[in-house]
């Protein structure tokens, strides 16, 4: 089947089997390998992309379903050569280690900040609860999201600087 969609602001097309998962289309056909596959059961969120602005697990959508849609992947976070505040904050706050969950985590967080410019720690932890991280224990991810928030909320108290 032929599909046409916008990915990170660019028109992209493909001629694919209906069974091709969106994540495989994005990674394989478009070569955008920043989105990852971490599980088979829609559990981990490593494959998260924004579909018409809302974070979804691209391993649980067929690419044909995205026909005519607007997709944003981690590769589309930068604007005019500038890092998105969430990207800068993830580095600054050490919100990543192995980097595998990071793209999905940042996209989910970016959408949260679009909806809610000053999320509380609970808001952040709730919004990110469909994205699993094995490395960071989430503490610094929460800090990064708070740091990137347009209207900053109270920072997380986490003891003394190590």
């Amino acid at each position: 089947m032929e599909i046409a969609l916008r990915v990170n602001g660019q028109e992209r097309t493909g001629d694919i089997e209906p069974r091709r998962l969106l994540i495989h289309f994005i990674r394989g056909d478009l070569g955008l390998t920043g989105s990852h596959v971490g599980c088979d059961t829609t559990s981990c969120g490593a494959c998260t992309v924004l579909l018409d602005g809302s974070p979804v697990k691209s391993c649980t959508l067929f690419a044909v379903q995205a026909n005519g849609s607007e997709i944003k992947t981690v590769e589309g976070l930068m604007q005019d050569g500038e890092l998105d505040p969430i990207q800068a904050a993830f580095k600054e706050e050490h919100g990543l280690q192995c980097g595998f969950c990071t793209p999905g985590m940042m996209l989910t967080a970016a959408e949260l900040l679009d909806r809610n410019p000053s999320p509380s720690e609970d808001d952040i932890r709730w919004a990110l609860s469909g994205n699993i991280c094995r490395c960071t224990g989430y503490v610094n991810i929460v800090k990064a999201v708070q740091a990137a928030a347009p209207a900053k909320s109270e920072p997380v108290a986490t003891g003394s600087e190590a």
Partner: peptide, 26 residues
């Protein structure tokens, strides 16, 4: 019928479900 697909697609990925035709209502 394919609606949200959040139960159906995982079952299809595990090949526990193999419908011949998906009718996407989205």
């Amino acid at each position: 019928i394919l609606a949200g697909g959040q139960s159906l697609i995982p079952l299809m990925k595990l090949r526990f479900a193999s419908p011949g035709l998906l009718v996407d209502v989205n």
